[in-house]
Design a protein around this nucleic acid. Structure first.
Lengths: 303, 303
DNA sequence: CGACGTCCATGCCATCAGGTTATAGACGCA
DNA sequence: TGCGTCTATAACCTGATGGCATGGACGTCG
C-alpha cells in the first residue's frame, strides 16, 4: 500500500493537535483539504484512524498504533534523504555546513578560507538555519557539519568541539530605560519580557532566556521568533529584550536597538559539530581542523 | 521533503533491474510513465540518482546510498501498516489468519470451530496467500497468524508450532505414462520437468522440487506458477509434474490430473506461525491452542 | 432560551499531476 | 548501413487535489 509522506505528516499534525482546523493552519492548507487528506489516508490504510466530534479529532486504537510509528518512519526517511544529499555533495566536492544566525560570525570567513587552503577544489556551502532548528540541520542529516551555539538539542548524538566563547550581552530597544546604563547586572533584567525561540527548542530556548540564572524569577515571554529579522523587529518594537552574543552588537546592529554588556550570566560557547557517522570522512575532518585552527586567529597557531 | 512510497518502489525496481523498460513492465506501467517517475524523484531529492545510457540505467554514488536504505524504509512502512490493521482487527474482534492454498485443508474447519468456541464474538478472517509469499503475509504484518507448510522463508523470525505431517504425493497429467503406476519411487520422477514456485521463494521452492532428494540430478522446471489454478492448468497441460501434499488429491481433484503416492521423499509438515510480537496476545494464543487441539481430531484430546 | 462560535463535512470549480500512445534520438551490433 | 534496444519527448486525456463557500451538529454564553 502506497502513501505520500505528506499524508503521514498531515496525519501526525492532526494527531498532535487533536484538531483539523488548527493542524490545517499549521500546515498552511485549508481545513477542507486536510479533511480530505485524512480521509484519503484512512481509505488507503483501510482503517478508521480518528473518531470525529465537534470538539475535535481523537485517535482510535489503530490510529494510536500508527501514530506511534510514523514519526520514526519520517525521521528515517529524512535521514536517508540527508545521507543521499551528502553523498551527492561529496561527488560534487561540496561540503554542506549549517550555521545558526550569529553562530560563528567573524570566525566564519577564516574557517572557510582555511578549509579552502586544505582542500583545493572543494566548495563550502553555508546554510543558514532558523532558530526553530538549533542543530542547524545536523539532526536531519541536512548538512555534513555545523557551526552552532552550545548547548543545543541533540548535542549528545553528535560530535562536538568547542571553538571559543564570548560574553552574552543584552539587546534592548533604544528607548528602554536601562539602555542608558553602560553595563547591566542580569538581576535587573529578570522581570523584563523576553523575546524567545520557539518552545520545542527546549534547552536551547531556556539557555537564551538564562533560565538557570534567574533565582526563581519566572520567565516572561513577550514574543516568539525564529529568524534574525523577526527577532530584531520584535525587540525594536518593544515586545521584549533578549540575550545575544557580544558579536551580535556588530553583526546585527540596527537603528532602534542597543546592545549592552550583562554581568551575572555565563558566556556563550560556539562549537563545530558533525555526525558520528562522518568521523572517518577526511573532508569533514579537514573542516573540523580548519575550525580548530582558526580558533587562534586567522593565520593559525599550532594545531 | 515529501515523496510517495510509490516513487520509492519504482526507484528500487529500476535500480534492481538496471533498466527502465524492464522495470516498467514488472511494475505494470508504461516506460514513459516510469521515466517521469524517476525524473520526479530526482527532482524532489535534488540529486541525480542514475546515469542514463543506451544500455540501461546505472546508479550514481548518491543513488547507491539511497538504494541501500529505501528497501528497509519500505519494509518498515509495510510493517507499521500491518500493525495498524492488526489493531483495527482487534478492535473489531477479527483475527486475521493467512493460509497457503493446501496448507491445512480439512484441519482448517476444525481449527476455526475450536477457536469460535474459545472466543465467542470473535471472527476469523482467512486470507489465502499466493505461493509468491509462502509466509502467507506474516512477514509483512498482514496477518496475526498463519497456517502454512514448513519450511518457509523467514521462518526463523517468527514462532512456529508443528501441527501434523502428511506424505507428499505427485500430481501428474492423467495421460502421463507413470500415471498408471499405483505408487511411484521419486527416482523415477527426477528427470521429469516440474511446475515450480517463483524463484524468490528460495528454500520453499527447493523443498517442493525435492532439491535435497535428487542425488545430484538437476531440476528441470517446465513452468512457474504462484496460484493453485495456474498450477493445476500447468500440470494438466503437460508443462510438468509437481509434488503436493496427499490432501491435495482430495482438495484439488480435477479432470485431467492424477495424484499418486511417492516413495523416497520426506513428508510435508504443516504448522501454525505467529510473530514474536504477538506472543503475549491472548487471542493469538487461543488461536494457536485451537490449532494444537485440533491436531488430535475435531473433538480434541488433552492439550 | 436563543444567538453565536467552533468544529468537521460537502459541493462546486479550476488547476495540475500523472498515465497512455506514438515517436524521436542515440548507440551497439551484425 | 540497417536493425534492435535503450531512454527522452510530445500530445492528449483523465482523475486527483486544493481552494472557497456553505451546511450541519453541538456546546456556550448572554
Amino acid at each position: 500500500m502506497d502513501v505520500d509522506t505528506r499524508l503521514l505528516r498531515s496525519f501526525v499534525a492532526v494527531a498532535e493537535d487533536g484538531s483539523l482546523t488548527r493542524a490545517a493552519e499549521r500546515l498552511f492548507v485549508s481545513q477542507p483539504a486536510l479533511t480530505r487528506q485524512i480521509k484519503q489516508l484512512e481509505d488507503r490504510v483501510g482503517v478508521r484512524l480518528f473518531t470525529r466530534s465537534q470538539t475535535g479529532m481523537v485517535l482510535t486504537a489503530p490510529g494510536r498504533v500508527l501514530a506511534a510509528r510514523v514519526p520514526d518512519l519520517l525521521a528515517e526517511w529524512d535521514r536517508a534523504l540527508g545521507e543521499t544529499k551528502g553523498a551527492a555533495g561529496r561527488a560534487a566536492r561540496v561540503l554542506r555546513v549549517g550555521f545558526l544566525a550569529s553562530a560563528a560570525n567573524e570566525a566564519t570567513q577564516h574557517i572557510v578560507a582555511e578549509f579552502a587552503r586544505r582542500r583545493p577544489g572543494w566548495r563550502v556551502e553555508m546554510r543558514q538555519a532558523s532558530w526553530a532548528d538549533p542543530s542547524a540541520g545536523l539532526a536531519d542529516g541536512d548538512v555534513d557539519a555545523a557551526l552552532l551555539r552550545l548547548p543545543f538539542p541533540g548535542q549528545d548524538a553528535v560530535r562536538v568541539e568547542v571553538l571559543f566563547s564570548e560574553p552574552r550581552w543584552i539587546a534592548l530597544p533604544e528607548a528602554h530605560p536601562l539602555a542608558v546604563r553602560e553595563r547591566i547586572p542580569f538581576r535587573d533584567l529578570r522581570d523584563e519580557p523576553f523575546v524567545a525561540a520557539p518552545p520545542r527548542t527546549g534547552a536551547w530556548r531556556d539557555y537564551w532566556l538564562a533560565a538557570d540564572e534567574r533565582d526563581g524569577h519566572p520567565v516572561r515571554v513577550g514574543a516568539v521568533t525564529d529568524q534574525p529579522d523577526e527577532w530584531l523587529s520584535a525587540i525594536a518594537n518593544g515586545y521584549g529584550i533578549a540575550l545575544a552574543p557580544e558579536s551580535a552588537a556588530r553583526y546585527y546592529a540596527r537603528p532602534g536597538i542597543t546592545y549592552r554588556p550583562v554581568t551575572g550570566v555565563s558566556p556563550s560557547r560556539v562549537g563545530v559539530a558533525w555526525p558520528a557517522s562522518a568521523d572517518a570522512d577526511p573532508v569533514v575532518r579537514d573542516f573540523v581542523r580548519s575550525c580548530l585552527n582558526s580558533r587562534q586567529g586567522p593565520q593559525g597557531g599550532p594545531v
